[in-house]
Design a protein around this nucleic acid. Structure first.
Lengths: 231, 231
DNA sequence: CTTGACGGGTGTACGCCGTACACCTACCGT
DNA sequence: ACGGTAGGTGTACGGCGTACACCCGTCAAG
């Protein structure tokens, strides 16, 4: 009876991580991410603020969860065609998602910086994108450049997805072990290995961001120059 | 006497907007923009928090001021050479500034979204960049495309600098009158006019973001394809 | 020399935020 | 019948931005 009384309050279906995340995304869609507080998510769900913490660890983890929801909305690759149109389709799908959730780039970027590595869902997206290039015949080197060139167009943001300052942080206790990393994100791993062993770079120095930036800049400027001659 | 007593506290030079802004930038440089509060800026200056409000209207206006400081650090264009290397040099200078202040893209982007138009300093930067392309022989149309293509590479962020939703907001009382706009940002204005009167667009519809996005995406993919053949 | 306005620093207080912690209770497996 | 547990509650704390009243040098006008 008391059960019914509680439920009767608003005939509210039981809370769940999924419901919390959906409510948060909906609230962010209208009013932006600044108008998102634990308190008003709770209110939208007809629940007291602290109830949310039974389903998400804290606000940052909630933001990570929201990112998962968003990445889910990107169409999976339809690899029945050439790399170019596969990439094109996928990027346009990502863009449609971003247009539905204009707050997404800022959140993804800020969470990536705070965690020093993107959310697993974002990792998976990047990994599959690398896979498409690889399958299209790109060398590891060229794929590496390609990812930098695409940069913000892949997700609407962020030149520097993998901070060079990823080292210099206390070792995360629940970080993924390398073997699981390799299994789950084979293409990212392949790329990372190749880059790490690049001849003229100190071990662990990673990629030369300056070089990559100029590479992408010049590719773009060359493309514009060609158009200038044409028109 | 009491004057001396007050000053003697830390022999503090009088506050000023410039000093406040510098302190804020310094604090953001170490610890990121999340570790920036009116309270700790004040503390860094040896002053009570409310004192800051005599020099900046509020925190948002302070962020705008910080952006001004940053944009100042970008080298002015050295237009003694061709458009391509002028643009290249300027973009690399902007990048150096962004590397010094990793929090900058997020702040610039969020303030741009909040104001519906970039900070005047950012406007000036974009205007001068457009000017360089124009001087290099780019048609208005092509410059327009070029700005979209460069997108995040111009400032490290933001496809959509000018929100399509710039209309649909109550008219800002202290918005710049069009004639002043035209005088101060001639190239932006020229571009805006051209885009607004584009044949197949309804008046005020602005540019077709979807088209621009695909244009830039294809330019990039074509560039990559060319490289794929080469390597 | 007096006075009064004013620019710049102060102090207090309010409402919002994230969240730690103690609690209460309905349910379920033993 | 009973103890554990999962899920919702209530209270409280420290930090945030900032409104508002205040206070005191400085300096120009009378």
């Amino acid at each position: 009876m008391t059960t019914k009384a509680v439920v009767a309050a608003q005939s509210r279906p039981p809370l769940s991580r999924g419901r919390v995340l959906s409510a948060a995304v909906a609230l962010a869609d209208e009013g932006g991410v600044d108008a998102l507080s634990m308190r008003n998510i709770a209110q939208a769900l007809g629940v007291v603020p602290m109830a949310l913490y039974k389903h998400v660890a804290n606000k940052n983890e909630l933001l990570d969860g929201m990112i998962d929801v968003l990445m889910d909305e990107i169409d999976p690759p339809a690899d029945d065609t050439d790399w170019k149109s596969t990439v094109r389709r996928r990027v346009l799908s990502a863009r449609r998602m971003l247009l539905r959730h204009p707050w997404a780039p800022a959140v993804i970027e800020s969470r990536t910086k705070a965690r020093a590595t993107p959310t697993p869902a974002v990792m998976a997206y990047l990994d599959s994108m690398i896979g498409i290039f690889r399958a299209g015949g790109f060398s590891i080197r060229l794929v590496h450049h390609a990812m930098h060139v695409m940069g913000s167009r892949l997700l609407g943001f962020s030149q520097e997805l993998f901070e060079d300052s990823a080292d210099g942080r206390e070792p995360d206790p629940d970080a993924m072990p390398p073997e699981e990393m390799a299994a789950r994100y084979p293409h990212i791993t392949e790329l990372a290995m190749a880059v790490a062993h690049d001849p003229e770079s100190v071990v662990g120095a990673g990629c030369d961001d300056q070089f990559e930036f100029e590479f992408a800049l010049d590719l773009t400027l060359d493309g514009l120059e060609r158009l200038l001659g044409t028109t």
